[in-house]
Amino acid sequence: MEFLGFLVRRLLWSLLVLFGLSIVIFTIARIVPGDPARMALGPTASAEQVADLQEKLGLNKPMVEQYGLFLTGLTQGELGRSLLTEQSVNSDIRKTFPATLELVISTILFAFVLGVPLGVAAARWKDRWPDTLVRAIAIFSAVLPAFFLALLLQILAGYVLNILPTTGRLPASMSFDADITGLILIDSLLRGRFDVMGEAARHLLLPTLALGLATMGQIARITRASMIDVSRQDYIEAARAFGVPDRLRMFKYMLRPAFVPPLTITGLEFASLIGNAFVVELIFSWPGMASYGIRAIVQKDLNAIMGVVMVSGAFFVFVNLMIDVLVGVVDPRVRIRGSRT
């Protein structure tokens, strides 16, 4: 019961955040210099043509009215038309979002599934070689920019060793229509096309590594700190004084309370992940929403920019809502009190 109330509160907060985001992105899109209509038509277009397009796009209406139209569109899931592709932004995003989603999900899984055990190991053997190694990896991955890592991996694994593909989601020779979830790995599994699945996984590997290493290091670092912090708590000493075995203390009594910070940081890392995805997608020719967003920004394609930002914002908020739920499951204090002290 208390958990339900907690969920409802979090959900309402999320909606509020998205509403705020819509105001911010609308304002930013309108105050940046440069006329979108002029940008879309090019320098050779006449003043009348530009005015026509402004009229068509509603750019000459009052701001508040423009925002009203934008918001109405949003609530109906209608993001308008892209000036650049001349398609509806909806269909552009529907085409590109699954690729980004697949990349981001595999990155988070990679970072979390590897980062947490590394952090636990570092805490378990604090100040010994596993700890030093994990800390070195964490720092190394944090200072290495994603684009550099992406290029490095591409050169190493793709050209020097020539063992992994370096561009796209599938080889050009392979045609597969991911029409169920849009995620090739999942759809190929559902359709029983294991050849496609294998190839998709091979293509996913390098971008995932390039995008995920920094997050993994971050998660490992936080997990380590959190485990060490918990290991000093009285209740761990108490468990020891009552003869609870080492392994159980480590993996149950310590890991569960220590699990919340890595979860939270994973949610926050999503923001930087979406940002870095722009670069990684570009380098690996990954047909995702991030690279679509970059083109939109460069061309000042207003509707596309707002669409991409709203979709990534909603995605971010959704992921963090899920993480709040997980945190609530892991830590009863959060459900009972609604916060953690």
Binding site: D234, A238, Y253, D331, P332
Partner: peptide
């Protein structure tokens, strides 16, 4: 030694606020 710890000899911890695991 483990057979005695927490059984034949056991201990009442000092701080009720921090000696119980908060998540169980």
């Amino acid at each position: 030694r483990l057979k005695l710890r927490g059984t034949a000899m056991s201990m009442v911890f000092q701080d009720p606020m921090s000696s119980l695991n908060p998540v169980f």
